[in-house]
Write a protein that binds this DNA or RNA. Structure first.
Lengths: 134, 134
DNA sequence: ATACTTCTTTAAGTCCACTCCAAGTCAAGA
DNA sequence: TCTTGACTTGGAGTGGACTTAAAGAAGTAT
């Protein structure tokens, strides 16, 4: 698979794919005799993993470290497990913060809907901010 | 409440608090006669809102727009509701991506744990811990 | 063979969200 | 009065993650 096809498949630019490889966020991609990238299934797996974890907010740095450990073989397995567990925790915390923001947002949205539906907005003046009245 | 106290209360730097105000992410903060910031409850409400929504990944730009609309009064209520609804959707999508990444991460973590527990490759770090499992 | 497209590389540029700095003001204490 | 320390401002600097540019080699179509 060419870089163009991979780019289209995952909706990520060719530049970004090359960049991910350059910085070691994915291992070196298989090349043709002429030196052109020819992504194999295993290469695609790494690309997918990178996109998935970046989407969740995992840092490039952590991905690079994971790939580095991975290429050093079985002896780094425990370190890799720990890395993944740490990242997992960070991601769960991020999701919790999102959930709290959603609660707040939903409350505000309800207040706005009520205000608009009930025709009038005597609401603006009096409500303090402690319940999200902004 | 001084900027220092607010900074400590929310774990956010004084610079960031001033920055948020400067770019309009929160409305102008109440000042003393001498021009020093003296955060009132309503100011704190805005700060909290800003932190909460930034935590969820909402852009500074969207917050600025919301604050701008808010200061224009009741006539912008519908626009504000729409803004919040759009942001809500974006945040829900972000959470969904996080959930997908978590699934993937959990799977990988299980695989590592199994590999390590089954004693397959623990030359490096010794585990006394062998269950015959799988 | 010629023209066109797609690929390669390194390096510089961009965008966002802060973060830090320099220079100055203000209020209280020795 | 002088010093200390917290505050003010505008503007420059930083870090992360891309993104674009420049220059050239290789594959494809006519």
């Amino acid at each position: 698979m060419t870089i163009r096809q991979v780019s289209e498949k995952y909706g990520i630019s060719q530049d970004t794919l090359r960049y991910y490889e350059k910085i070691g966020m994915i291992p070196p991609v298989t090349r043709t005799a002429g030196g052109i990238r020819d992504y194999q299934e295993s290469d695609l797996g790494w690309v997918e993993l990178a996109i998935c974890l970046r989407n969740a907010g995992m840092s490039v740095e952590a991905m690079v470290e994971y790939v580095r450990l991975n290429r050093q073989g079985d002896s780094t397995m425990k370190a890799r497990l720990e890395l993944l567990q740490n990242q997992r925790q960070a991601i769960v915390e991020r999701r919790d913060r999102i959930d709290r923001a959603l609660e707040r947002l939903d409350y505000k949205i309800r207040v706005y809907e009520d205000a608009i539906n009930s025709g009038k907005l005597s609401w603006d003046q009096k409500h303090g901010d402690e319940n999200g009245g902004n």
